[in-house]
Design a protein around this nucleic acid. Structure first.
Lengths: 230, 230
DNA sequence: AACCCCAAATTGTTGAACAATCCGATGAAC
DNA sequence: GTTCATCGGATTGTTCAACAATTTGGGGTT
């Protein structure tokens, strides 16, 4: 039945071109399932099982794997197979190394337009509403959207892509944690402050505040990870 | 004869594992040929020609293409084929958008150790020697090495990878230009100054100097590109 | 010169096959 | 009972041959 669903989605997507898109489509499907948590970190993606389930040949599935491995959504171990990426302590450190560079840089040197500020404010309000409603997932989404928008200030497609990859990895970290943690609630106010500073034109304060925020967020996340492992 | 060279290099590389490495190897070979300028920007990479020349099947070659496309070393046009990336004005702008964020950020917030400063000084001296000897290619290499080292201050593997990708794209820009330009000679002194500032601990001066350098370098490069096109 | 149509070449994808490697179970030895 | 080696079965890595879909280039017509 998964085959039927696949074929269905295929024909639905195929508005324009038919030939030459199945690899990208497979990658999209898998990316979505991983992001949604259906494919949990560490689980193996069997070539035979997936190829028959998605109704594609092993070769094209492999090409999709190449794409996803390039995005570090999956890990390829030679002769062993591909697995959903399962970020650990070192990966979290790397995530925050990246964020601690490009987010403050964007705040300092990015182009802050009124429109972007408006969208950022809308996102922050969404986050506040989610917090008041106790909607953890929505809060996490809003938080990620805000920080993605911050990097968007750079106007750079590559940096945005990198940031989105990093945020996707963050999502994997949360998926790997046993307890669904209310991680973001006490950071919402910081985000409010960030947007205020950007609107006021206080770039350096915004940047240093971001760095402080990232430092404490990393520390807290690493602490929770250590709790799980120990 | 290319087949022989391929087989040769294959057996040379295969020190440890035999099975399961040809895709990565093909990608490495193509990456090298593109970087060396043997495969000029815009030229088409025919599947049949390359697969027979390298002695691999079309399928594995395609997987290697996926990898290279992910690195934006090649451009894939559906049903048309893959071509060596040929960066234009917009790509150059994007390159400098990225560099203008992560290089000053690295200078400001990276971890500057004495060892890194020593290697940077060695690179700068290499650049000076190359300038005095009139070795354009060596100068370009040293320049790229220095800026790669600057990003290395972040300690982040991802940022380093991104920077190296960007620098590889820069190389493609130069390869695409008809005249081999003495582009870097008058930037050597700026690099000397940069390292001095870093050693003196004057981070903010280093960062602002970097930004100014990147601005003028971008302007000059765009100017030369416009000359070519016009 | 502009347009349409067709054949050749190329890409996208499939399926089956085989080699190499890894995994787990079975059994032997201590 | 535990450890170790061995041997099949399953899975991955790679190749090959084929076919469908698409682009490309060249006539031929108007």
């Amino acid at each position: 039945m998964t085959i039927q669903a696949a074929a269905e989605l295929d024909s639905a997507t195929a508005g324009t071109a038919e030939h030459a898109h199945t690899t990208a489509w497979i990658a999209t499907v898998l990316r979505g399932r991983i992001a949604a948590g259906e494919l949990t970190p560490g689980s193996k993606l069997s070539e035979q099982a997936l190829s028959t389930a998605l109704g594609v040949s092993r070769n094209t599935l492999r090409e999709a794997f190449s794409t996803l491995a390039g995005e570090s959504m999956v890990t390829r171990i030679p002769n062993r197979g591909v697995f959903v990426a399962s970020p650990g302590v070192e990966e979290v450190r790397e995530i925050y190394r990246v964020r601690r560079m490009i987010e403050p840089a964007a705040a300092l040197w990015g182009e802050v337009t009124p429109e972007v500020l408006d969208t950022m404010e809308a996102i922050v309000q969404r986050a506040q509403a989610a917090r008041d409603a106790g909607a953890v997932a929505a809060m996490a989404d809003a938080n990620q959207a805000l920080h993605s928008a911050v990097v968007g200030l750079t106007g750079s497609e590559s940096l945005r892509t990198l940031m989105d990859r990093v945020l996707a990895e963050m999502r994997l970290v949360f998926h790997a944690m046993a307890s669904a943690p209310d991680f973001h609630s006490h950071y919402v106010d910081r985000n409010v402050q960030l947007v205020e500073r950007l609107r006021a034109g206080h770039r350096e304060e915004a940047a240093s505040g971001l760095r402080a925020y990232l430092d404490s967020a990393e520390a807290e996340l690493l602490g929770r990870l250590a709790d799980e492992t120990g």
